[in-house]
Design a protein around this nucleic acid. Structure first.
Lengths: 267, 267
DNA sequence: CGTTATGTTGAGCTCCCTCAAGGTTGGTGG
DNA sequence: CCACCAACCTTGAGGGAGCTCAACATAACG
């Protein structure tokens, strides 16, 4: 089993050749190969590595550049009045971090690397120059809109659903987002497997529940839907059942992307 | 008392002369008078009226224009799997609705008028032409960023706080947003008064609690902070205490606006 | 002046939090 | 190679915040 797992996981596009973001833009956002390669060139030119637990972007400091995650996960969190911290967004490989930075405003949140993150940087100026690649430019704005859409969905989710549904929904969303990047693999038996460096503490916090309850909830999902979280990987045994359980509808992420491809991927 | 109330409320900028949005952009977003007048001209040119309970924007239909509320309130809601509906955002006079529409994507939400709404329309093309007014254009994007910031704050709020804090935070936010538009008035005794067409059902739904609990919570806030909601108006007797109670910090809305003015307004 | 929406209050129940105590894993140094 | 330590995971018991159901009061409205 581990052999197969490794094989499949390593089949994802090498970040040095085609970034996760480029894969998604081509496969699901109607961007041409040439434009995607252009983007990758920019990203490859200006990279940085951020250690686990270290900030990608600090609170309050204005930026004039955006970061695109090439490898690793980051979380965006808000420090609450009492001193607690709340995860308000998760940034996966291929995601754009703090798009609002293009306006140079101070941020209300901080972005922290979960595992080791490698990120490409695009300055506000370089971003403006992308106007010569209208489809690409539009696709990047689409990503920004999608992240707003995700934010609304997170809100509605924890406002309405119980703990099990919330956690299930979060997992379904992560799976779909990774799938769009080509980073979720089908297993023998139809399960889906992806790498995920989040601890139960992270998952619980993002789904608005205590660590203990996150643990119990994950145990329940394991029993009902064959959910296995081990060694930084998550396998969802019966994804369609899990989606049905929490009423997951991925169109809030897919947006206008040709929905045919999306439907096929999840048929 | 009612006489004073009416007098004060009627002192807000007449929507026909200076829109709420223009007031805010000039007072808090570093926009010149001339630019603001230009915006108002565009808005006045293309107006529509939407009856209470009627959609400003329907779910799923792609738009290529944005709407700016000149008068009245609207809510943005998501229909949940079970059929329940969840308010994910509130649009006040002066707010921009569904900024994401500029990309022409289908919306994941629908926007409904709460009371009678008068809205100005800006087509995507007219929006592009605003590039000749860089400060204005930038200010509009700032508004879009602020609404994202509010969305994150809402999430963190209901994820972390108890019912009383959530409701208090929502009220503090509404007060500040209206104040930026010049639509919140100081009362004798230091209380703050503003018009608000929301029912307890709306407030409860937005703050993620049942109507009954919203009622009990509002009663508690009335006792503790002199909160009075009557006749479509809300008065917050002791705003600083209410803000302290829920740990409200309005900088997530104010963004880079000259914070001096903001601090003075709420000193 | 009935009718409908909204506000108000009570009682019971349940989901989830908190506190507490292990157990397990992975990394580090002797 | 083993001892140790620090995260992380797991399980239990008790309590409380807030939900649901049910009834009624009050206000808005034609």
């Amino acid at each position: 089993m581990p052999d197969l797992v490794d094989t499949l996981v390593n089949e994802r596009p090498s970040a040095l050749q085609t970034s996760f973001l480029a894969h998604k833009l081509v496969a699901h956002r109607n961007v041409h190969d040439a434009d995607a390669r252009h983007l990758d060139t920019i990203l490859r030119r200006n990279q940085r590595t951020v250690e686990p637990g270290t900030p990608l972007m600090e609170l309050g400091s204005p930026h004039s550049e955006i970061h695109i995650i090439l490898e690793g996960w980051a979380l965006r969190r808000k420090i609450m009045p009492g001193g607690a911290s709340q995860i308000v967004a998760l940034h996966l490989p291929g995601d754009i971090c703090e798009f609002n930075a293009v306006l140079g405003t101070a941020s209300d949140t901080e972005t922290i690397a979960v595992d080791r993150v490698r990120a490409g940087t695009i300055s506000a100026r370089a971003l403006n120059e992308l106007a010569t690649h209208p489809r690409l430019s539009r696709a990047l704005w689409l990503e920004a809109m999608a992240s707003g859409s995700i934010q609304r969905q997170w809100f509605a989710n924890i406002a309405c659903a119980n703990a099990a549904s919330r956690m299930a929904h979060l997992l379904c969303e992560l799976e779909l987002r990774l799938d769009l990047m080509g980073a979720s693999q089908t297993q023998r038996g139809g399960g889906r497997l992806f790498a995920c460096p989040l601890t139960q503490m992270h998952l619980g916090n993002a789904a608005a529940m205590s660590v203990e309850h996150a643990n119990r909830t994950l145990a329940q999902l394991r029993r009902q839907f064959g959910l296995v979280a081990r060694n930084g990987q998550i396998e969802i045994g019966d994804l369609p059942a899990l989606q049905a359980f929490c009423g997951f509808d991925g169109s809030y992420i897919a947006l206008e992307t040709n929905n045919r491809a999306l439907a096929m991927a999840h048929n």
